[in-house]
Structures are given as structure tokens and as C-alpha cells.
Amino acid sequence: MSEHPLSHAADEKLICVVLPRFNMNSLTTLIEPLRIANYISDKPLYEWQFLSPGGGNITASNGMTVECDDLRDIPHTATIILFGSWGAERNTDHHLISWLRQSARHGIRLIGVETGAYILARAGLLYGKQATTHWSLYPGFSETFADIEPSEQLYTMDKQIMTCAGGTATADLMLHLMQDQHSPDLASEVSSQMLHQSIRAPETLQRPIVNTGSGHVNPIILEVTRFLERHIEDHIPIPDLCRRTGVPQRKLERLFRRDLGCTIVQFYRQLKLQYARTLLVSTNMNIREISVACGFNSMSYFSHCFSKTFGRKPSLYRMSWPDDQPEPIWHGTMYSFIKKPQKDIA
């Protein structure tokens, strides 16, 4: 990957700090708007460089590598963008955290991408601020950092400290900053060159609550699933749910069967188990605490349901990418759940 050594030529200087198993898509999608802006402008507007604690060739989650220098002093006008992904939610590198704190004291702008937000939070740089991370880690992030205002959106703009969910949202963040730093016309042209049809606002939701693949979901189902996701730790009886929505139980069950291929109870339980899996891999909560947080009255029933759904006991699911696996495997997603007929867990 092309690296631009920092000089005085470009207006904006970006320091991309990558950690092992980082998401290459997030990195390249962030850099591409900068490259195009340089391509269509009269002079270089952006420069970027890759750093990592200890330096060397850092391997991304897709197996590609980026050659990095070690952490060092950087210009106070630069922007640090911290890329974390698999395993970074447990990263406690004291040298990195100290370097980030020192950079913040010097007024350097910091952006945490995906689980990079975890490390900014551990450095105390997100205290009292709005922050986001990838939606799959959002439950663990909100449980771990009670002094942060979590928001499941594409990116957050909080003066010196920003966060981004990763993926294609990194392009939106860069284009948004490009509008402010240069001009809306430049950002629009870069967006067109990328075939990125519109620049999404920071508060844009990361995902639909239900994704069937076809997109044909009754609005009643959307309303109910949103409500259930807001009440993961509760036990909502189906008759109460029907009274809240004003929809007869037989009709609601029929809609769930038709659009999602499961009963309301099965869907609600799957939501709870997905939430539990995220807490297992991204927090230090014990299994009993997690079962309670996910609305299970019995820890043994929780363990039984979890094992039947994901093929492993909760105690064996504390790492999202174990060291003995050549690549991560994340079976039992909501997509796979609604794509096959469901049987009740005995």
C-alpha cells in the first residue's frame, strides 16, 4: 500500500495507526477519498503514513500486510486515526495508550475506527462524550464504558475526538471532513469518482433492525423488533407485546412466520443470544452476569440455548478470533437464523 512520507507540501497530514488483525476495508475506504482528492486537485491536499506499536509488517484480518513505522512524535497539526478490529476490544497496550494521551494533550485530533474506540475509551479520552463502534460490538462497548454516551450511528463528531463504526462509514467521515476543510464541491466530486452516491450524515443508523435479504418486512414487524431490541434484559410476555402494538396475537405470529420464518419467542431469544455472544467476547462480565443482562432467569437454560445455537458453551466463547484459528468464524448470525426453518430449543 502506498505510503506518503510526511512533509510540508500537503494541507492535511494523517497518521494511520493499525493494530494486528485490523480491518483492511476500513483502512482503504478511508484513504481512497484522500487519494482521489489529490488526483483531481492542483496540489497535494493530503498525506498519510502508517504507524503501529513496535513497527514492522502488520497483518490485517484478510491476510494482507501494511509496513509500519513505530510510534513517534508527530506534527501537532496532524490527525491520528486508530484502526482496531479483532481482539482490539481487549487491547491494554500501555505504551500505545500513553502515546494517545500525550497526543491529545498536544491538541492532535484523534479518530477511533471500529474497536479503536475501545482503546480511546481506555485512555480516558472519550469520558462524557458521544461515541460509536461497529454495531456488532455496540452492546459490549456500552456495558464496558458507562461514562460514555454510546450511539449506534456511522460516526461521531466531537471536536478533537471522533469515532467511526468502520467499513464504508470511513469514506463518509472523510468526505464530511473534506467538506469542512476544503469545500462541498470537492467532496461531491470525490464522492462521484468513488461511485459513492451520497455522503451520509454522522447520525445515520448503521443497519436496519431486521435484514431478511429481500427487504420486504411488514412495518408492524419492524416496530416490534425495534421494541424487543430495546428490552433485551427484560421478559416481555407475548400478550403484553400485542397490547402495546394493538395487533392480535394470531396476526402477529402469522406475520413473524411469513416475514422472518420463526415465532416471536424464537426471534426474541435469538436477539438475546446474539447480545450475549457480543458481551462474552468484548467484556469481562462473568457468565451469570451476562445471562441476567440478556434476560435469562436460569443460567443453565441460558447455557443450553447458547450451546444449541452456536455450537460452543458460553465459557468457550470468550474470544471472537481464537489464536488457534487461521481466520475468524462467526456462525449463528441473525441472517442465517431467519433463512432456515426454526425448531424450538428443547
Score class of each variant (00 low, 15 high):
Glu3Asp: 06
Leu6Ser: 04
His8Pro: 00
Ala9Met: 12
Ala9Gly: 02
Asp11Arg: 06
Asp11Ala: 12
Lys13Gln: 14
Ile15His: 01
Ile15Pro: 06
Cys16Phe: 13
Leu19Gln: 07
Asn25Leu: 15
Leu30Met: 15
Arg35Val: 11
Ile36Glu: 05
Ala37Leu: 06
Ala37Met: 04
Asn38Met: 02
Ile40Trp: 13
Ser41Val: 08
Asp42Lys: 08
Lys43Trp: 12
Leu45Gln: 10
Glu47Cys: 05
Gln49His: 13
Pro53Asn: 08
Gly56Met: 00
Asn57Cys: 09
Ile58Phe: 12
Ala60Pro: 09
Cys68Asp: 05
Phe83Gly: 09
Ser85Asp: 11
Arg90Asp: 13
Thr92Glu: 13
His94Leu: 13
His94Thr: 14
Leu96Cys: 01
Leu100Cys: 01
Arg101Gly: 02
Ser103Ile: 04
Ser103Glu: 00
Ser103Thr: 03
Gly107Phe: 04
Ala117Val: 09
Ala121Val: 06
Gly124Phe: 04
Tyr127Arg: 07
Lys129Val: 01
Thr133Asn: 03
His134Thr: 08
Ser136Arg: 15
Pro139Leu: 14
Phe141Met: 07
Ser142Cys: 08
Glu143Pro: 07
Glu149Cys: 10
Tyr155Trp: 09
Tyr155Ser: 08
Met162Ala: 09
Thr163Val: 03
Gly166His: 11
Thr168Tyr: 11
Met178Arg: 03
Val190Cys: 03
Gln193Asp: 15
His196Leu: 06
Ser198Thr: 15
Ile199Asp: 01
Arg200Asp: 11
Arg200Ser: 14
Ala201His: 06
Thr204Phe: 14
Gln206Pro: 11
Arg207Lys: 13
Pro208Arg: 15
Val210Pro: 03
Leu222Pro: 01
Leu228Phe: 09
Glu229Leu: 10
His231Ser: 03
His231Asn: 12
His231Asp: 02
His235Asp: 10
Ile238Leu: 14
Pro239Asp: 00
Arg243Tyr: 09
Lys251Ser: 14
Phe256Ile: 12
Arg258Glu: 04
Asp259Trp: 06
Asp259Lys: 04
Tyr275Lys: 02
Ala276Ile: 10
Leu280Ala: 03
Val281Cys: 04
Val281Leu: 07
Val281Asp: 00
Asn284Ala: 05
Ile287Cys: 06
Val292Ile: 12
Ala293Lys: 00
Cys294Thr: 02
Gly295Asn: 05
Phe296Asn: 12
Ser300Gln: 12
Phe306Arg: 00
Phe306Val: 10
Gly311Lys: 11
Arg312Gln: 10
Ser315Ile: 08
Ser315Asn: 07
Pro326Tyr: 10
Glu327His: 13
Pro328Asn: 05
Trp330Met: 10
Thr333Glu: 08
Ser336Gly: 07
Lys339Tyr: 05
Lys343Trp: 08
Ile345Asn: 10
Ile345Leu: 14
